[in-house]
Simulated scan of single mutants.
Amino acid sequence: MDNTGYIALSRQAALWRQLETVANNMANANTPAFKAEQMMFSDYLVKTKTHERPFGQKLAFPRDVGMVRDTREGSMTHTGNALDVAIQGDGYFVIDTPAGMRYTRAGHFRLDETGMMVTTEGHAVMQNGDLPVIFAPNEREITIARDGTVSTENGVIGRLRVVTFENEQDLRKAGAGLYDTLAEPIEKERPDVVQGMVEESNVVAVAEMTNMISILRSYQGIQKMLDNEHERQLKVINSLGRPNQNA
Rank of each mutant, 00 (worst) to 15 (best):
M1Q: 14
N3P: 00
N3E: 09
T4M: 15
A8I: 10
S10K: 07
Q12P: 02
L15V: 01
L15K: 05
A23T: 04
A27H: 06
N28L: 07
N30R: 13
F34V: 11
M40D: 08
S42L: 10
D43W: 08
K49T: 13
T50F: 02
E52G: 07
F55V: 14
P62L: 07
V65K: 08
V68T: 06
T77S: 07
D84W: 00
D84K: 01
I95M: 00
D96G: 12
Y103I: 00
Y103C: 03
G107F: 03
F109H: 05
R110N: 08
M116A: 03
V118C: 01
V125K: 04
M126C: 01
Q127I: 02
L131Q: 15
L131N: 15
P132V: 00
V133W: 08
I134F: 13
E139C: 09
T143D: 11
R146N: 15
T149W: 12
T149S: 05
V150N: 01
T152D: 02
V156I: 10
V156F: 04
I157F: 12
V163R: 04
N167S: 05
E168N: 14
A174V: 03
G177R: 06
G177D: 12
Y179N: 06
Y179P: 15
Y179C: 11
K188M: 04
V193G: 04
Q195E: 02
G196V: 01
E200G: 15
V204F: 14
I213H: 09
S214R: 10
L216K: 09
S218K: 13
I222G: 01
K224M: 11
N228D: 11
E229D: 06
Q233T: 02
I237E: 02
S239Q: 14
L240F: 13
G241F: 06
P243D: 14
P243Q: 13
